Simulated scan of single mutants.
Amino acid sequence: MTDVDGRDVAAWVGRTYEGLAGVLDAEPATWDAPTLCAGWQVRHLVAHVTMPARLSPEQFGAEMAAARGDFGVLSDTVAARDAALPAADLLGALRSPVLHAWQPPGGGATGALSHAVVHSLDVTVALGRPPVAPADAVAAVLDAVTAAEGAWFGVDLAGVRLESSDTGWAWGSGDAVRADGGSLVALLAGRTLPDGRALPRR
């Protein structure tokens, strides 16, 4: 799986999910901690991201039909239900090669990388931990989301300059928003940081 200037995105995705599994395996108490996804604890988020490794295409189709085609409803339903699965099962799914090779429909390798990086940061930023995603993967997602000028997640980047405090990465012009690269990705994904910072919505 290559994209993002021909680089090995699959390796980045795999390392991101493996890193997240390592954090949760080492710190069991974090399963009940809140994430940057409003209303979701870590266990809900992991249940969400591991759907491709746990649900067959037929099962996913049945879930989508039950949700009347609304992916947001499907996500909330599956997250609420499958958050109760044993931690060992969810960790196994995070480490699954099936998940590491999965690409969202229409999203390709870049979409798979963004999904992995953003959701891993939903956990690590909320917990105050360093990113588990490789630094190059975080930078690639920053480049991809800003190239789309925030349209992926509905944030308004007009008059905003983003500056990474840990890598020197920067984009845009206007009022400076300075944070570490992982926190910038979370802001670009429409999240509110633990300190209350958020980017305006369109």
Rank of each mutant, 00 (worst) to 15 (best):
P97A: 14
D8C: 09
E58M: 05
L127E: 03
H48A: 02
W31D: 13
L74C: 14
L188D: 00
G19S: 05
L99I: 05
T16C: 01
V125H: 13
A93H: 04
R202G: 09
T35P: 07
G72K: 08
G172A: 10
V46Q: 03
A158M: 08
A33D: 02
G92Q: 05
G182M: 02
A87S: 14
D82M: 06
A112V: 06
L187K: 00
P200L: 14
D175F: 02
E149Q: 06
A112I: 04
H119A: 03
P194K: 10
A179W: 05
G107Y: 04
V160K: 00
A126K: 01
A109Q: 13
R15N: 08
C37M: 12
L20Y: 03
R197K: 14
L187W: 00
A189T: 07
D195V: 03
D156P: 08
D25G: 14
T124W: 00
A80T: 12
R129A: 11
G196L: 06
R201L: 12
M51P: 10
G168K: 13
T16Q: 00
G150T: 09
V78H: 11
P97W: 04
T110V: 15
E149D: 13
A147P: 00
L90H: 01
D180L: 11
A112C: 07
E27P: 10
T124D: 12
G6Y: 00
G107L: 12
Q103L: 07
V117D: 08
A116F: 02
P130H: 02
A198Y: 04
L142V: 09
E163N: 06
L90Q: 07
A148W: 06
R191Y: 01
G108V: 08
A87H: 15
P28Q: 03
V123A: 07
R95K: 12
R197C: 14
E27L: 14
G181M: 02
T2M: 14
P28W: 01
A93R: 03
M64G: 11
W12A: 15
H115V: 03
H115N: 13
V123C: 11
A80I: 05
A137D: 14
P194E: 15
A186C: 11
G196P: 01
R68S: 14
A189R: 04
V155E: 04
G108I: 07
V9S: 05
L127H: 05
R68K: 14
D143V: 05
D76Q: 13
A38K: 11
D156C: 15
C37T: 10
G72C: 09
S164T: 11
T124H: 06
A126H: 12
G61E: 04
L162Q: 02
G107S: 10
P194M: 11
A112E: 09
A11W: 03
A189Y: 00
P57C: 00
A29M: 08
M51N: 13
L24V: 09
P52Q: 12
V155Q: 03
Q103K: 08
A198N: 08
G172R: 09
A139F: 05
V145I: 15
L142A: 04
D70R: 09
L113C: 09
R7K: 12
D156M: 10
F60G: 05
R197N: 11
M1Q: 10
G72F: 04
R178D: 15
A26I: 08
A67L: 05
G39L: 01
V145S: 07
A198I: 04
G39A: 01
G14Q: 15
P131F: 01
S120Y: 02
R178N: 13
L91Y: 06
L85Y: 06
L24G: 06
V49Y: 09
L199H: 04
V9Q: 10
R15L: 12
